[in-house]
Amino acid sequence: MHAAKHTLSPSLPAEPRLAGDLAIWIFILAELLAFGLFFAAYAFARAHDPALFAAEQEALNRNAGAINTALLLTASYFVVRAVHAAEAGRGRQGARWLLAALGCAGGFVVIKLAEYAAAFDAGISLSSSTFHMFYLSLTFFHFMHVLLGMVILGALWLNARRGRYGPRDMNGIETGAAYWHMVDLVWLVLFPLVYVIR
């Protein structure tokens, strides 16, 4: 039976395995630790001055934050579809899903840059307040990860177009996919924390 050969098919429980290289998962743990510390630092800094944080958070563009959440989630979903396509032996078709994911990531970048531009126009900088120091550094740290994620998605796309991925060649696409999902996962905490919770 097909599903017995590789464990990604959900219908049959097989040997537990990590999807992708062990190295990327170690890297993901390190990244999550860094983001976790950053989130906790924000949350406890906020506890010292909730009124200031609430007032300045109020000025953030929540529409932009929510649309960007949807874009990252959709990119993640497209990456999942690309992985499924490769598993099903339709790796080249998966390339189109990867290109669509890249498009969503690009949309995130454009919206985030517009947010930064609006903030700088309003005279906001790293030193304007504790809130803005956190808002800018935390979102920029994440932004850099989105850019790296786009480089990875681009590499996956090129490889998928060349037919590099298939049921017996899943490691590359699974490794890249795991990184992208981490970028998404971190934002799922960042968005309510920085934009909404007051």
Partner: peptide, 10 residues
Amino acid sequence: DFMALARAPL
């Protein structure tokens, strides 16, 4: 689901 950890080692 997306990271497929449901099927990963505990």
